[in-house]
Amino acid sequence: MSDAGLAVVGHGASDGTVAGGRPDPAGGRRRTDPARPAHPVLLLLARIVLPAALLLAWYAATRAGVFSPVQLPSPGSVLDAGRGLVGRGELLTHVHISTQRVLVGFLVGSTIGVALGALVGLSRVADLVLAPTIGALRAVPSLAWVPLLILWLKIGEDSKITLIAIGAMFPVFTTTYLALRHVDAQLVEAARAFGLRGVRLLTTVQLPAVVPAVFSGLRLALAQSWLFLVAAELIASSQGLGFLLIDSQNNGRTDRLLLAIVLLAVLGKLSDAALGVVERWAVRRWA
């Protein structure tokens, strides 16, 4: 059944719950699976062993003087850089403005993506009229919009959020559109045979069938949003983590540069995990 196929799409980006650990959309049967692996503490250990090893290797390399502090500062000095920035009240501002840009851009972009994907996926006319144009726009590398956005919207929040929204829109559009195209035709026909049409057919059959696919699109879009945030901030900004990156590079502050990278990793992971929680709820509720 196509729904089962869709449900599996795009969990590469999910939190580390191991293949198959995701709740079955059909209900929580697997939770009571007697073959459930290992103790929770062991699972936690399995997840942190690689980051801990990397941290240790980093520490050992700097301690042994393999690299100069400008090439690779020690974990301790990165932590100090973080403390210093927090003390001056800058770090929170950077984190705050970046997170805000990502959230707003992601929400705007993914909303447009779902709406457009639904329109083109459901309506033959819209598909005919819109799909080639959207396909062409999608083929433009999103960063190519930057000069035009800056020209039109100036260097401010609008141009950055628009760029992020463009980056977030296409994955959501594509997954929604394709998933709607591949909703089991037999199910749709059966529902039609029982008198369902229009909006009721949409909410009873088509939308629930694509919920898992839409969420995998949303997760891709969130990752894209962070990517385009950094791009936008690297090019023109005075605040945010991307600005911290370029500013630190210009001033030779490799410690702050590494701090910004670590923060991007942590924020990206946290936001993806939060979306994962929403996804599990939505799949239980609708799919």
């Binding site: 059944m1 729904d3 089962a4 959309p25 059909a26 037999q186 199910l187 026909e189 059966a190 529902a191 039609r192 045979a193 029982f194 008198g195 369902l196 009873t204 059959v205 629930p208 069938a209 609708w286 799919a287």
Partner: peptide
């Protein structure tokens, strides 16, 4: 499509995300 008939297909064609009861209610 005629509401005076009802059809059962060779495949069950049930909505996988709905319970048996909700599928019958359809």
């Amino acid at each position: 499509i005629d509401d005076r008939c009802a059809i059962a297909f060779q495949e069950p064609r049930l909505l996988p995300w709905r319970t048996v009861r909700a599928n019958v209610a359809l």
